[in-house]
Design a protein around this nucleic acid. Structure first.
Length: 784
RNA sequence: GAGCCCAUGGUCUAGUGGUUAUGACGUCUCCCUUACACGGAGAAGGCCGGGAGUUCGAAUCUCUCUGGGCUCACCA
């Protein structure tokens, strides 16, 4: 936008709006603020930006608010004189797009040719990605879009694989056949971190086992009767008088007629159900522990399609749910079923598909976590968390974190770069540096099995958990293994910024992985944003239908109003409640600022930068008040806290500058009954104050500040300026603030009580405290 | 069951040993005043969740109770 245009807008527009913003957006898009050059000698500031998953509209309003805050980190650091590396990538691996693609084309992944399915996913992502970029640009996100990376690019996947290969060689990875969390709907193993517990209604069935060699029976209660065929023991609490005499005997499993031991074990709680429990492979995590502890033989009764196996006898082939109905019918027929109780049960579900998780023994790759706990806890302790208290979330998770299953039985992900010898099954690990696809490629030519010298291999068909990719984002953006010079100058980064919802995944895995690879924590600061909730404080979600499309809000009130709202609504780390009314409030403030600028612009180019020889007391006073706002705002920015500057600047502008100072000097600025020298002093202070407010507000409201700035002060963008330092020399004026405000209020109240208009003249004495402002105050209130 | 966090006018929120307890939104009344009616001025509205303690002095520190939120664990 050139100066002519902005003047046009100024004279016409009554307030700030989205339409004005769109004009500025074009200009800002071309600024290339995010250009980063390691050769330029500025203090380095690197941001590990969360790569958003392109999920299409509506994007989560809380996420949009959070990204606008992350953008404010980048903008404020630029204005603090740093060389800011502000990368942006798209997280494009994993389940969400696979599920989206299945739905969109009405196909099933496993019934589709792998190559074809991958193509469809990629196409879907490309569409969703361009929409995501549009949204990011609309909220004023100033990251390096020119070098936008994708976690599914050959280059990125080569890095994920290279880091895996290093972990493999360092013996950080092992392969194990262990009962793991398995989501039938997604058809893959999932990690503990991906489990979400939900209270779901379920049936608790009570049924009897015949005690061998006696007429006694023992009743057990189970929510998983369909696992009866995999029952290997019954346990009861050794203190439980009802069952004491039965411990050590054997019981006959109804329907299946197999025999199992009745054992004493403290994990059976007498007060729950019947007090006796059947132990099956595997109903829950406790069963896993008991099988291990009691040395029981597992019987695989559920397969990876979620159907009961031959081990289930008559139930073979049924799904878990229909198997449950059928076994209850059979038990009823058999006379073993005592009763069925409706209960609410905390059920582990998959956080992607929301369906119940089964525990099935699967052959998977694991990354060792348990051995690292102490070291990782130490690293976490050394990081600066914003807010400090959120460090605890991660430390708590650390205490229970188990080894991380990293392999997934899915198609759209980074392939596990391993082949196995067809003869002796020895693993072959390729050289790092290239992107490998073992499911469709042979290993590099001339590969010979180091054990048996065979040249025949088969590739692993699995992919990685997507967190394997995103947990090395800080390495990718610093060109690890790719540009040693760049990496050494940019790693570790300065700050990780992210939401509280992915602390135990992205944050935790990033620390573990990057530290293992580089022996250095990937950043020194961790900024954790709170969650955006609906107006009643409930989580926004598509299923609840309480989500709000941030683009609609931005179209209605503008991006700056949205960003100002996000900044001023809550301290960093606190959750914030959506409120359209409060976003309107933010827009009102921008309109106020706009009108202040319109007023000041009237005086043209006088004395805007050149300090007049003599400043009048009122002008010194406002500069002192301004100075205090500068100090507070800068303190907020250096702590990555935008709540402080946004509220401080709103308060200063709206409650001090506009009603008191501007009113005080209005007559002088117009030059009515004042000398030219006095007039220039006012105009200087007015401009100085506005300039400073604009500079300090620019990281939070990049559009309106750019618009006013380029219209009044410079051809050069405000976003290439430095923050002002606080003004000194007027400290003694601070004492007048309260008395000025009190006096003005007193006059206004007086006029009101006399029923005269504000411009009417009354006679009133100026207090001696305020004598130095007498001329301004008389003019302001029209005092005789 | 354990840990962490929170409790301030109708609503949201600032405040970390001394303030007349901050601001926003909302409410009520008056006012077109050469930036702004998308505005201005004024007003009402709070025993800072309850109780006990430390202190000359507590919204602020300690204990305790109550009520919320989050996380983890157990639940056959």
């Amino acid at each position: 936008m050139d100066k002519q245009d902005s003047k046009q807008i100024f004279s016409d527009a009554k307030g700030w709006s989205r339409d004005l913003e769109k004009e500025i957006q074009k200009r800002l898009d071309n600024l290339e603020l995010s250009n980063f050059d390691v050769k330029i000698a500025k203090p380095f500031f690197g941001i590990d930006t969360p790569p958003p998953y392109p999920s299409g509209r509506p994007w989560h309003l809380g996420a949009a608010a959070q990204y606008s805050q992350i953008d404010a980190i980048a903008r404020s650091e630029r204005m603090l004189g740093k060389g800011v590396l502000f990368p942006i990538g798209m997280d494009r691996n994993g389940l969400p797009v696979e599920r989206y693609t299945e739905k969109k084309y009405d196909i099933r992944m496993r019934e589709t040719e792998r190559e074809k399915f991958i193509e469809l996913c990629r196409g879907a992502l490309d569409d969703l990605q361009s929409e995501m970029v549009e949204i990011l640009k609309a909220i004023g996100f100033s990251a390096d879009f020119k070098n936008m990376y994708r976690t599914d690019s050959d280059e990125y996947r080569a890095l994920t694989q290279a880091t895996f290969i290093k972990h493999w060689k360092d013996e950080m990875i092992y392969r194990g056949n262990r009962p793991t969390n398995y989501c039938v709907e997604c058809g893959t193993t999932i990690a503990d971190a991906e489990i979400e517990y939900k209270e779901l209604p379920t049936k608790l069935a009570y049924f009897t086992f015949q005690v061998k060699g006696s007429k006694d029976t023992i009743t057990i209660a189970s929510t998983r009767p369909e696992l009866l065929g995999a029952c290997r023991a019954i346990i009861a609490n050794p203190e439980d008088t009802r069952y004491k005499s039965l411990i050590g005997k054997r019981a006959i499993v109804p329907i299946y007629k197999t025999e199992v031991d009745i054992l004493g074990h403290s994990s059976a709680k007498p007060e729950f159900g019947s007090g006796a429990v059947m132990v099956c492979s595997y109903g829950d995590y406790n069963d896993v522990l008991l099988f291990k502890e009691l040395g029981l033989d597992e019987k695989i009764i559920i397969n990876e399609n979620g159907r009961l196996t031959d081990a289930a006898g008559k139930l073979a082939g049924l799904t878990v749910n229909s198997g449950r109905k059928e076994i209850l019918r059979l038990l009823q027929e058999d006379g073993s079923l005592e009763k069925v109780q409706e209960i609410s049960h905390r059920t582990p579900t998959c956080d992607r598909s929301k369906s119940p998780v089964e525990i099935i023994p699967m052959d998977e790759y694991y990354m060792k976590i348990k051995d690292l706990k102490d070291k990782v806890a130490e690293i976490i302790d050394g990081l600066n968390f914003i807010p400090e208290q959120h460090k605890q979330i991660l430390l708590n998770w650390m205490k229970v974190a188990a080894d991380w299953p990293i392999s997934r039985r899915r198609f759209y992900g980074t392939e596990i770069p391993l082949w196995y010898c067809k003869k002796c099954n020895e693993a072959y690990v390729p050289q790092p540096g290239r992107y490998y696809r073992p499911w469709k490629e042979n290993p590099p030519s001339e590969t010979v099995c180091k054990k048996c010298k065979s040249t025949e291999f088969y590739g692993d068909t699995r992919t990685f958990d997507t967190w394997m990719d995103s947990s090395v984002s800080s390495l990718f953006v610093t060109k690890y293994l790719n540009d040693a010079n760049f990496h050494s100058k940019t790693y570790p980064l300065t700050i990780r910024a992210q939401g509280v919802d992915i602390v135990r995944t992205w944050l935790f895995y990033s620390i573990v992985r990057c530290f293992e690879l580089t022996k250095t924590p990937p950043w020194s600061n961790v900024w954790i944003g709170g969650m955006g909730l609906d107006e009643h404080g409930e989580k926004m979600s598509k299923s609840k239908g309480n989500g709000v499309d941030p683009m609609l809000i931005i179209e209605r009130y503008g991006s700056d109003a949205f960003r100002f709202w996000a900044a001023s609504e809550a301290s960093p780390g606190s959750n914030f409640l959506f409120s359209e009314q409060r976003i309107m409030g933010a827009q009102k403030f921008l309109t106020k600022l706009w009108n202040v600028a319109k007023f000041i612009k009237e005086f043209g180019d006088y004395g805007m930068t050149e300090k007049p020889k003599k400043l009048l007391p009122a002008d010194k006073w406002i500069l002192e008040e301004l100075s205090s706002a500068v100090k507070d705002s800068l303190k907020g920015y250096t702590a990555f806290n935008f709540f402080v500057p946004s509220n401080r600047l709103r308060e200063f502008t709206w409650n001090i500058f506009a009603p008191h100072y501007i009113e005080m000097v209005k007559a002088r600025a117009y030059g009515k009954d004042f000398s030219k020298e006095e007039k220039l002093s006012a105009i200087y202070a007015l401009n100085q104050t506005l300039r400073t407010i604009l500079l300090l507000l620019a990281p939070i409201c990049p559009f309106i500040t750019e618009s006013i700035w380029t219209s009044l002060y410079s051809e050069e963008s405000i976003h290439k300026m430095r923050f002002p330092s606080s003004i000194t020399g007027f400290e003694e004026m601070a004492k007048y603030s309260n008395i000025i405000i009190e006096f003005n209020t007193k006059v206004w109240r007086e006029k009101r009580s006399r029923g005269v208009s504000l411009r009417d003249s009354i006679s009133l004495d100026i207090p001696t405290d305020l004598e130095i402002f007498e001329k301004d105050l008389r003019a302001m209130h029209n005092l005789k």
